[in-house]
């Protein structure tokens, strides 16, 4: 069973380069861990929500707007797709994502087509 782990974070206070380096290391260690355990399917960080563009097609017309689809304080900053046997295992993986401590992780099962 595959789950998408959507990583949400609010605006962080500016980080020192040392803090940034530490966070990057934490993410690298986490990712490496789930690659080795066989849970990892995909995962990437995303550019900030200020770079987002939303697309809607209405009456055959394509409308582009600046910004994320929903403006909220917390935005998606990255994702993983993991293989897990059930929700408990997916939640236990999600709880180890570094951003879980400051933001939150939304777990969405992938629907098999």
């Amino acid at each position: 069973m595959q789950y998408m782990l959507l990583i949400y974070e609010g605006q962080r206070p500016p980080m020192s380069s040392e803090e940034q380096g530490k966070l990057i290391q934490e993410y690298a260690a986490f990712t490496q861990g789930i690659v080795q355990s066989g849970h990892f399917k995909a995962g990437d960080p995303l550019e900030s929500a200020s770079t987002a563009t939303s697309v809607r097609v209405r009456n055959g017309k394509t409308l582009l707007t600046d910004g994320p689809f929903v403006e909220t304080k917390e935005q998606v900053i990255g994702y993983y797709i993991v293989e897990a046997k059930d929700l408990d295992e997916a939640a236990s993986i999600a709880s180890r994502i570094p951003s879980a401590r400051v933001g939150g992780i939304e777990i969405r099962p992938l629907r098999k087509m």
């Binding site: 408990d88 099962p109 629907r111």
Partner: peptide, 14 residues
């Protein structure tokens, strides 16, 4: 069903 909430007694640490 969709999120596959397990049908089992949780592990001892949980």
């Amino acid at each position: 069903r969709a999120a596959r909430i397990p049908y089992e007694v949780p592990s001892s640490e949980q």
